[in-house]
Amino acid sequence: MTKGIGTRREQILKLLLESRLGLGIDEIAEQLDISRNAVQQHLSSLEQEQLVKKDIFKSTGGRPSRNYVLTEHGINYFPKQYSWFGNLVLSELKSEMSEDAFRQFMWRLGVKLAKTLLTQFDGKQPDEKVAALVDTMQSLGYEASLDINTGQPIIKASNCVYHDLAQQFSELCDFDHALISTLLDRPIEQTACMARGDCSCAFLIKSEVSG
């Protein structure tokens, strides 16, 4: 029985995580020792947050019972630790490459990602591309914004999506540089970096069109 561990909603999510085929309302109520109505209320709230969804009906010997399962969003509600694996992979790559080769590798990765996104930028004017870039970076988790107060446009990212890794592998900035410059088809200059202690990562967009 799952009692006294976290909030009720966390208990329900944990039960569904451990039962990937799903659980019915009565099963959840029994395992948590709470009323059926209480379970329904929590599930309704979790559905609205797109953490759970209704799945198949299953027979329980009485009336058919609707199963509930976690959505992908619900699965991702639980902590994930990727940095140690990323650190392991990058350390191994860097040990087998020269510094220049490692930087070029990061640049190629940035260009490769950019090419998968270029259709969103086709036919746009330069200012429209910048706006699209901010939206794209937001969707990737960068918490990006455009600063035009300095006279030249600067893309600022207040969340480094691989902050821990970037502190050890500064070459990751080459990935960002390649991604941004490829999507904008313009040269950029990184003027601030969170991994170096700045408040945000900042990329100055230069006026010349790249060749």
Results as ranks from 00 to 15, higher is better:
2 T>S: 09
6 G>K: 02
7 T>R: 07
9 R>C: 03
18 E>I: 05
18 E>S: 06
21 L>Q: 15
23 L>G: 08
25 I>W: 00
27 E>V: 11
27 E>F: 01
30 E>T: 10
31 Q>V: 12
31 Q>W: 00
32 L>T: 03
32 L>R: 06
35 S>L: 04
36 R>P: 04
37 N>P: 00
38 A>P: 00
39 V>I: 10
42 H>R: 06
43 L>Y: 01
46 L>E: 01
48 Q>G: 12
50 Q>F: 08
55 D>N: 11
57 F>V: 08
59 S>I: 02
59 S>H: 02
60 T>Y: 05
61 G>Y: 07
61 G>Q: 07
62 G>K: 10
62 G>L: 13
63 R>G: 12
64 P>S: 09
69 V>S: 08
69 V>F: 06
71 T>K: 07
71 T>C: 08
72 E>H: 10
72 E>F: 10
73 H>D: 12
76 N>C: 08
77 Y>F: 15
80 K>L: 15
80 K>C: 09
81 Q>N: 11
82 Y>A: 08
86 G>V: 04
90 L>H: 04
93 L>N: 01
94 K>I: 07
95 S>M: 07
96 E>L: 14
96 E>Y: 07
106 M>Y: 03
106 M>W: 05
108 R>F: 05
110 G>Q: 07
112 K>M: 09
112 K>R: 13
115 K>L: 03
115 K>H: 13
115 K>T: 10
116 T>H: 07
117 L>G: 02
121 F>N: 09
128 E>T: 03
129 K>G: 04
132 A>P: 00
133 L>N: 04
138 Q>S: 14
141 G>M: 12
142 Y>I: 02
143 E>R: 10
143 E>W: 02
144 A>G: 09
146 L>P: 14
147 D>N: 15
148 I>K: 09
148 I>R: 12
149 N>G: 15
151 G>C: 08
151 G>T: 12
152 Q>N: 11
154 I>P: 00
168 Q>K: 13
171 E>P: 00
171 E>V: 07
173 C>F: 01
175 F>K: 07
178 A>N: 11
183 L>M: 06
186 R>I: 00
187 P>E: 04
188 I>D: 11
189 E>H: 08
191 T>Q: 08
191 T>L: 05
194 M>L: 13
195 A>M: 03
199 C>N: 13
200 S>F: 11
201 C>Y: 01
201 C>M: 04
201 C>H: 02
207 S>T: 14
